[in-house]
Design a protein around this nucleic acid. Structure first.
Lengths: 143, 143
DNA sequence: AACAAATGAGTTGTACACAATCAAATAGCG
DNA sequence: CGCTATTTGATTGTGTACAACTCATTTGTT
């Protein structure tokens, strides 16, 4: 009677569930900004790289490949949040830059992290400890 | 200079990344069984409910709705891992049951949890503590 | 019995993820 | 210089997620 193959025992299932729960918690907040969750992640990177960032480096930050990013960025371009400029120096790389609207959106997003922290019901210490554990895990299994 | 909107600081991003990393670690093992990761989760539920389970209850276990499960189950039926039987008692519910091939697959999957545990690089105690923390978090934010 | 509300499953449309493949551009080497 | 290998991004195809909707079948109420 091997009990190993049980959902409730497995770390992977908790991560799977928690990730989905998190996305659902973000959804209503992000809807006000007309962003999906992955688009919000992209925006967070761009707010830190206002000088622009290549699709490749963006993918490096988010651990996503161009197969995911290209259509996603195209949708964001249609919403006028970003613009794409092909680098003259190396015609292969496309630089992603925020538009003014994209820059302005940062203010509207400022309240989100605190709100999300509140719903976790964790103390600041517990959150930090959890983050460290997860970082360790990412380090262990990441490639 | 609000640093709140930074990827590295946010729990959600760790969960997002870890979930993806986990899926990628499972992928090669599951490929041998011709299963995707969500299909593997479904199989784990079915191995515990060999008498059959309704689509609704399956969705309850996995936190998925029929919009996701219906096509997924259809693909698994095409692979002859499961069969669907409409209940006579209540014609609305469809009972999902394993085929013999689906039952047999459990043996082939038996080695997976131990293998996955190994790659986490966590001690049994640390894994248990992490599981408890995540359970608490799921409890806090789940609905 | 009659009929409105609720339930269970499926369908449709949108948006990720990712493998596999492709095309263009550049770098590197003989 | 010319040729090949690599790099970068885009495209295609498959498989989730999920909201919104449809449809058939109960269930509840009168």
């Amino acid at each position: 009677m091997s009990n190993n193959l049980q959902l409730e025992k497995q770390l992977c299932f908790r991560l799977y569930s928690l990730n989905k729960l998190m996305c659902r918690l973000y959804a209503p907040l992000l809807k006000e900004l007309a962003l999906t969750y992955p688009q919000y992640l992209v925006m967070m990177v761009l707010w830190q790289y206002q000088e622009g960032i290549s699709v490749k480096d963006l993918g490096g930050q988010l651990d996503l490949d161009s197969g995911t990013l290209s259509p996603l960025l195209k949708r964001m371009e249609k919403q006028a949040l970003i613009k794409r400029e092909r680098q003259t120096k190396d015609e292969r790389v496309v630089l992603i830059k925020l538009t003014q609207a994209g820059i302005n959106l940062q203010q509207s997003a400022e309240h989100i992290p605190a709100k999300m922290f509140a719903v976790t019901g964790l103390s600041a210490e517990n959150l930090q400890a959890l983050n460290l554990t997860l970082d360790q895990l990412i380090e262990n299994i990441g490639n």
